[in-house]
């Protein structure tokens, strides 16, 4: 598929480290659209939509925000901690969205698994279906995420 100059520009920005250390694509050689496509297929296989996933991530973040950085127990299964840092990071897509540099870490008490995301991850998944490229520091594997956040 031929890419538009805007798509080229976006992909170049995502590969660069202008907005995020090591970029959003890591060592992934696939194009942005291939990455998004592959993760969308995986999500469908897992029986979830990106909206479901983002909503659940946001819900877990929101429950731990009032604890101001302390670990809190959410339901029976999770310990959640939201680490809030000063400053905002812009979404690389060309629209006026900026997210807090805030990291949510969830620890699943039964499986012992830990998953982390930033506010920007939630936005990227919800609005752009983008879980980032393999090897990028904030890449989230859809399966790990779904297994963790919907585990009971």
């Amino acid at each position: 598929m031929k890419k538009s100059p805007q798509q080229d520009k976006l992909e170049a920005l995502l590969r660069s480290s202008k907005l995020s250390a090591c970029g959003f694509l890591g060592e992934d050689k696939r194009s942005l659209w291939e990455i998004i496509d592959a993760d969308a297929t995986e999500l469908e296989r897992l029986g979830r939509t990106r909206e479901d996933v983002a909503a659940r991530m946001q819900e877990l973040t929101d429950q731990a925000v009032p604890a101001l950085g302390d670990w809190v127990k959410v339901g029976k299964m999770f310990q959640v901690c939201v680490d809030d840092n000063r400053g905002m990071i812009p979404c690389p897509w060309p629209h006026a969205v900026r997210c807090l540099k805030r990291i949510t870490t969830i620890h699943h008490l039964k499986t012992g698994k830990t998953v982390r995301w930033s506010d920007l991850n939630i936005h990227l998944i919800k609005e752009h279906g983008f879980f980032e490229g393999k090897g990028a520091p904030f890449r989230i594997e859809p399966k790990d995420l779904v297994d963790s956040i919907f585990a009971s």
């Binding site: 925000v65 009032p66 101001l68 950085g69 939201v82 809030d84 840092n85 000063r86 807090l100 805030r102």
Partner: peptide, 9 residues
């Protein structure tokens, strides 16, 4: 002065 969460609260 601190994180946005602390400031809101």
């Amino acid at each position: 002065c601190g994180s946005p969460g602390m400031i809101d609260s």
